[in-house]
């Protein structure tokens, strides 16, 4: 999907074309839910947050201007919602380590040993991501899972590009050390 295609859909949605907005939802549903899931842990909460993000995007649809990447606008909304969710969870004392029973769909093969190994790595990665601070986790997820470049990440998290660069480097190093602590030497 190209940015031009995205903004064309936005323009049609602004004109009242409901199918155009539905197409935007369909395009960004998976990456947005995935981003939210890696941020908050729970898939159910992630789906709710992603829906909220789309609803809010539609509410401010007429104010959108094609002077940025559409994905940065959408992920910026979702990022704010996830941070609010994490903050509220901490206040209620509900935040906990990523649940290990979240839709673990380890790819790969019929080999039970190999599949068990992938599940182990996945469990370690979830725990490692959860050990990072929110500001380190969000830039790492946006970079590794969403493939955004540093400039786009800076727009999403509203900081300088240099800050994104240093945060990603620190997040990688902390995650690597955390995985070593958790027993992922052979990662």
């Amino acid at each position: 999907m190209s940015q031009n295609d995205d903004w064309e859909l936005v323009a049609r949605a602004q004109a009242g074309d409901t199918t155009a907005f539905t197409e935007l939802v369909r395009r960004y549903q998976v990456p947005l839910v995935h981003f939210c899931q890696r941020m908050v842990g729970s898939l159910q909460d992630a789906e709710d947050l992603a829906q909220d993000a789309f609803v809010r995007l539609h509410r401010h649809l007429n104010r959108l201007r094609p002077d940025a990447r559409f994905s940065t606008v959408l992920f910026g909304i979702a990022r704010n919602l996830t941070l609010n969710h994490l903050r509220d969870s901490r206040r209620r004392g509900r935040h906990q380590a990523l649940p290990l029973d979240e839709q673990v769909r380890a790819p790969g093969g019929d080999n039970p040993g190999h599949r068990a190994r992938l599940e182990e790595i996945e469990t370690l990665l979830k725990a490692g991501l959860d050990s990072l601070s929110a500001e380190h986790r969000e830039v790492l997820v946006l970079r590794e899972l969403q493939g955004l470049d540093y400039e786009s990440i800076a727009q999403v998290v509203r900081c300088r590009k240099g800050t994104v660069k240093s945060r990603i480097a620190r997040a990688r190093e902390q995650l690597r050390l955390r995985l070593l602590e958790l027993g992922g030497q052979e990662l």
Partner: peptide
């Protein structure tokens, strides 16, 4: 590579 290999949520028509 391991991070990108984390399972993604499935696309759902019900979501939209």
């Amino acid at each position: 590579a391991h991070l990108r290999a984390l399972p993604q949520p499935e696309e759902s028509a019900a979501f939209a």
